[in-house]
């Protein structure tokens, strides 16, 4: 059987909120090392990769590898019934066709069990190559969210450029143009307010803003976001999940015809 007890249940709620509009159905792959998920959006332009390590759970048991086929909208409905401070336990039998979500209130005076039907999903795992990215920028996640949202009101695509000076976001549309530059900034009081740029080579790529916007639904998971870019490769937008792992989004760049 599989059982995972997560003291900070709100993390799972936030993960679902971040991906439920991008991906419809996906397998949660459970093994003795944790829970992993890899799924493409319906148009196969973006890829989501989630890792929740066993060590981040208060209790974790997985006797044999299980692929739990889940409709994310339905799981989100179930998790919305959990309080933000609740402890959430996931449970599934080896041969079962359901998953149980147990919610415990912080002072243990309310225990809820929600049982959700599983589905059979044929999923193909994509091989994501290990890449030494040409540019890696870490910046406040709320700032990234704000920039992407602001640019979306002006254009459909954004050019993201990284030089040793910083990262720039540019767009253009019927009403005009916009260009935002965030400079490397390591002299701020709080580490989470820093913008850091690691660069091997300047890089500039074009992306659809609607996907970047969707990724920023994960902002609540982490105060910082890391953007990894290389010429002619998908961007990686990574939100680290404290003590547990990460939620990564990959987005294919737009290319010249």
């Amino acid at each position: 059987m599989f059982e995972g007890r997560l003291l900070q249940g709100s993390l799972l709620k936030k993960v679902l909120e971040a991906i439920k509009d991008l991906v419809t159905d996906t397998n949660f792959d459970c093994s003795e090392t944790g829970i992993a998920l890899q799924a493409m959006d319906s148009s196969h332009v973006a890829l989501v990769s989630l890792l929740l390590k066993d060590t981040g759970f208060d209790h974790f048991r997985c006797d044999r590898n299980l692929a739990l086929g889940i409709n994310l909208q339905n799981m989100s409905k179930m998790l919305k019934c959990a309080g933000n401070d609740d402890i959430i336990t996931l449970k599934a039998e080896d041969e079962g066709d359901t998953i149980t979500f147990m919610f415990e209130s912080p002072n243990q005076d309310k225990i809820s069990d929600f049982e959700m039907k599983l589905m059979d999903i044929d999923s193909e795992h994509l091989g994501i190559p290990d890449t030494d990215y040409q540019a890696i920028v870490t910046m406040p996640s709320a700032e990234f969210q704000r920039i992407v949202r602001d640019l979306s009101s002006i254009g459909d695509t954004a050019v993201i450029g990284v030089t040793k000076e910083g990262i720039s976001f540019s767009t253009g549309g019927d009403i005009g143009k916009a260009n935002i530059v965030c400079r490397q900034n390591t002299n701020v009081d709080k580490e989470e307010d820093q913008t850091t740029v690691e660069i091997h080579e300047p890089v500039s790529l074009t992306f659809a803003l609607r996907y970047l916007n969707s990724f920023t639904k994960a902002t609540a998971l982490s105060p910082q976001v890391t953007l990894s870019l290389s010429k002619e490769l998908p961007i990686v937008v990574e939100y680290k999940i404290e003590k547990m792992g990460f939620l990564r989004f990959y987005l294919a760049p737009k290319i010249e015809e």
């Binding site: 196969h44 795992h125 994509l126 091989g127 294919a252 737009k254 010249e256």
Partner: peptide, 14 residues
């Protein structure tokens, strides 16, 4: 104009 390729053209099946 630019084209939007699929993520599959970067990451093969594994």
């Amino acid at each position: 104009d630019r084209q939007q390729p699929s993520i599959l053209s970067f990451f093969g099946g594994g």
